[in-house]
């Protein structure tokens, strides 16, 4: 089971309402390379992994991704909080507003809803870990695009933290892939 801690993994401060920025950052909430997909991907792949160590990596990184999803939600929530309708319209977010007001929902920057087809679970640890490594690189790349777009230094600071974590996760998945490959080959030739 999980226990909730009433804190963010990294503090979030935004300068004020900014629906234009919210519209882009929300893709890391419910977009193809976002934190919902990341957490669900690892937390569902873990069940069929071959060793306790690999289950541990997926459980722990998947759990950290839940914390990242909350950080992204805190950014978007505060960028939309109190945003005047004029700003929301100018940002091209009136379609989002019609369906969700200023609430959080799992969409990408263009309003496309999250789908389970963004992720995969093959029951093949080599295939799954390769997907996980690619997913971390895609998330890193998305955070770099968001940093390029951000005009709020507080948001940029949090995006930099999240980008760094993708780099660390990629590193850990790479090590995990080597561990699994050794495990499988030792079994085959024994």
């Amino acid at each position: 089971m999980w226990v909730y801690e009433k804190k963010l993994e990294y503090p979030v401060k935004v300068s004020g309402p900014n629906p234009k920025l919210a519209k882009t950052v929300i893709t890391q909430y419910g977009g193809p390379d976002g934190e919902l997909g990341a957490s669900l991907r690892y937390l569902t792949q873990r069940y069929s992994m071959p060793t306790s160590q690999v289950k541990g990596v997926l459980t722990d990184i998947g759990t950290e991704e839940l914390a990242h999803m909350e950080i992204v939600a805190a950014i978007v929530y505060n960028l939309l909080k109190g945003a005047p309708l004029e700003q929301i319209k100018a940002a091209g977010m009136e379609g989002y507003y019609a369906d969700h007001d200023r609430a959080l929902f799992f969409v990408n920057g263009d309003g496309v809803p999250w789908v389970a087809a963004y992720i995969q679970s093959k029951g093949d640890p080599i295939a799954d870990l390769h997907e996980d490594m690619a997913a971390e690189e895609k998330a890193r790349s998305t955070y770099e695009h968001l940093i390029n777009l951000s005009d709020d230094p507080g948001v940029t600071d949090v995006l930099r933290f999240l980008r760094e974590r993708e780099v660390v996760h990629f590193q850990r998945f790479g090590e995990t892939l080597n561990i699994v490959q050794e495990h499988l080959s030792s079994r085959k030739f024994w």
């Binding site: 990294y10 541990g56 990596v57 722990d60 660390v168 996760h169 850990r172 995990t176």
Partner: peptide, 13 residues
């Protein structure tokens, strides 16, 4: 706790 998270992931591998 961030230090613990990062060390935890490192120790996993």
């Amino acid at each position: 706790e961030f230090t613990a998270v990062d060390l935890n992931l490192y120790l996993d591998t």
